[in-house]
Design a protein around this nucleic acid. Structure first.
Length: 565
RNA sequence: CUCCCGGUAGCUCAGCUGGAUAGAGCAUCUGCCUUCUAAGCAGAGGGUCGCAGGUUCGAAUCCUGCCCGGGAGGCCA
């Protein structure tokens, strides 16, 4: 419909102004009294024609052949052309939704094979609330991508090697000593927390006394991670197995937390596999020769050739490849797996990392326009009106599982998703715990449950409704609030398309909230199970459309949609 | 110092690919349950859209500068 109006307007504007080449818009006005669609065409033309926009607008209207679906056209305000459509054309989508048909709502002329990588938190500790936000967001975006007909692989990249992994192994090693008999001070850079103690216990079960220090006093010789690792790697040949076990257990816990949070990955990609297959070396060799230089014993990538702030180290002077080196290999691998859209969801603290990764992709001769990064801002928690202190350093971060336990999965997901990604989230635990209107999740779920309950009421009264036939009764809905809901229902596809185009889901959250609000209002003002049977049927069809939209939307967000509350 | 994000009602936030009187929830006040779920509804008040310029018929929205808050600038990941 919008497109049809656009075409006609374009044609008319050529007639009155042959050199016409301007962009004009057809949009939905905020104010319903301004029509169903409005165009700024006359305002744009006014400049070129040096005439009053109102005069031009009237001229355009006069040339407008009557169009079957349009009930009225008017000029308003500074020269807007407002289109009022016939009520009937709004009924199609409502019918369709009430019958549960949500096919092909998102327009995508070019379906792709997408690799969506998100969370990818280090397996050196549990998932905390910040990761939770990425997890909720990534899983919802994945659903949107699928909805648009793309093939999507969701992937978690595991940093299971390098210094951090060894530090985890070391932390567990030292905590094992406590079980063996003596508590040893952890050096700076080690991991703390109950989970390390748990890992130590499991490791002792697995390895028994294999990692016991012969002489606890030796501890006084070492005070840094490097010193400790030097000693351990020399004297305990199986230390890498301890590290591996720790990482594996940690990954499993992460997996469990994520599954509980309704986030499931298709692939778990281990960084270490890149090394086993020599993919890191291969990748580095594939970089353009003059993008690499040696300096101070290290090998550097000249990312400044591609606009990065400074060059980056690939191989350190101790011959260890950096994280960046494996990341180059990892991204090369993503391209080689045949994806034509590669999306990374990263915490905003990684934004400085983007230029170098893009640079490396270009240096590999790959198309960096297929690659994009979605940045997510941080999460802070508020409880009892006060900020909850969190710092990774002291290990005082709040785990995702802890938050879920407090406020539930639905609330947690919703409040992560209802905020635009570039806005930091202040998560109000007390609000999220509430079970009334303050909490939008319950409000939306309640609307859905109410509609389900209406239908139960129908069967209680032995009323059967022929759904297919009843959809034609929608024309009986003539009240303002009913027409307003029908119009609002018609904007659902636009909301989804907007979300898809912009990699956002918060507009969907707001839409569902508003739709619920309209329903609650409707419910309070009208008797839905009316004495007038035709009216009753029509209202049930309308309510069902709302119910199914809520279900459809909450499914995308992976939020439960109970039938009774 | 450089880069990124935010600054909109008392609070938490939408709106930002320029459009008509700047929206919602909470909080504050006033009403509504013998009637389909009150986990709900109706109504009221509440704003220099951080500041200053600029572009334009039109700016919360685009551009420049500045101020405030958060984050990033490792041969860590």
């Amino acid at each position: 419909m919008k497109q049809k109006i656009h075409n006609i307007l374009t044609k008319i504007s050529f007639e009155i102004y042959p050199e016409f080449s301007e962009e004009f818009k057809i949009s939905k006005p905020n104010n319903p009294s301004h029509g169903d669609w409005t165009s700024n065409l006359a305002l744009i033309l006014a400049k070129k024609l040096k005439k009053s926009p109102i005069v031009i607008a009237e001229e355009i209207i006069n040339r407008f052949d009557s169009y079957e679906n349009i009930s009225n056209i008017e000029v308003a305000g500074a020269g807007f052309i407002n289109f009022f459509l016939k009520d009937e054309i709004f009924l199609e989508l409502t019918k369709r939704f009430s019958l549960g048909n949500f096919e092909n709502l998102v327009i995508n002329e070019n379906p792709k094979k997408i690799l969506l990588e998100y969370v990818s938190s280090n397996p050196t500790g549990p998932i905390h609330v910040g990761h939770g936000r990425s997890a909720a967001y990534g899983s919802a975006i994945a659903n949107l991508y699928k909805l648009a007909g793309n093939k999507v692989i969701q992937e978690y990249y595991i940093n299971d090697r390098g210094l951090q992994a060894k530090s985890l192994g070391l932390s567990v090693f030292l905590r094992m000593q406590k079980i063996y008999g003596k508590e040893i001070q952890l050096p700076e850079g080690c991991y703390e927390g109950d989970y390390i103690n748990n890992l130590a216990e499991l490791a002792v079960k697995e390895f028994e006394e294999k990692f016991k220090l012969n002489d606890f006093n030796i501890a006084s010789n070492y005070s840094t991670v490097k010193e400790w690792l030097g000693f351990i790697e020399k004297n305990y040949r199986d230390f890498s197995n301890l590290t591996k076990l720790s990482i594996d257990i940690q990954i499993n816990q992460i997996k469990e937390s994520l599954v509980e949070f309704r986030v499931e990955f298709d692939e778990w990609f281990k960084e270490s596999t890149l090394f086993k297959k020599e993919l890191v070396n291969d990748a580095l060799k594939s970089l353009k020769k003059n993008d690499i230089s040696k300096k101070e014993g290290a090998s550097w990538f000249r990312s400044t050739n591609y606009g990065d702030e400074k060059d980056r180290v690939l191989i350190r002077d101790d011959n260890e490849p950096t994280y960046f080196a494996s990341d180059i290999a990892y991204h090369k691998n993503k391209y080689e797996r045949g994806f034509n859209k590669i999306v990374n969801v990263w915490g905003a603290d990684h934004h400085g990392y983007i230029p170098r990764v893009k640079a490396s992709i270009e240096s590999l001769g790959l198309d960096s326009s297929l690659f994009s990064v979605l940045l997510i801002q941080f999460v802070s928690l508020k409880e009892n009106g006060k900020k909850v202190q969190m710092s990774t350093r002291s290990g005082e971060f709040i785990e995702l599982s802890e938050l879920i336990e407090k406020v539930g999965i639905d609330s947690t997901r919703y409040y992560f998703l209802a905020r635009k990604p570039e806005q930091s989230v202040e998560f109000d635990i007390d609000l999220a715990k509430k079970t009334d209107k303050d909490n939008h999740v319950y409000y939306i779920q309640y609307a859905h449950a109410r509609i389900c309950s209406l239908k139960k009421e129908l069967s209680k009264r032995d009323i059967e409704i022929d759904f297919d036939a009843s959809t034609n009764k929608l024309t009986l809905l003539k009240k303002d609030n009913e027409k307003d809901i029908i119009s609002f229902i018609n904007s659902y596809p636009e909301v989804l398309n907007h979300c898809y185009r912009n990699n956002e889901v918060h507009p969907l959250c707001f839409y569902l909230r508003d739709l619920s609000s309209k329903f609650h209002s409707f419910y309070n003002s009208e008797k839905i199970i009316s004495e007038d049977e035709d009216l009753r049927d029509a209202r049930i069809v309308l309510s069902t459309a709302i119910q199914k939209i809520i279900k459809n939307g909450l499914d995308i967000l992976k939020i439960d949609c109970p039938e009774s509350m």
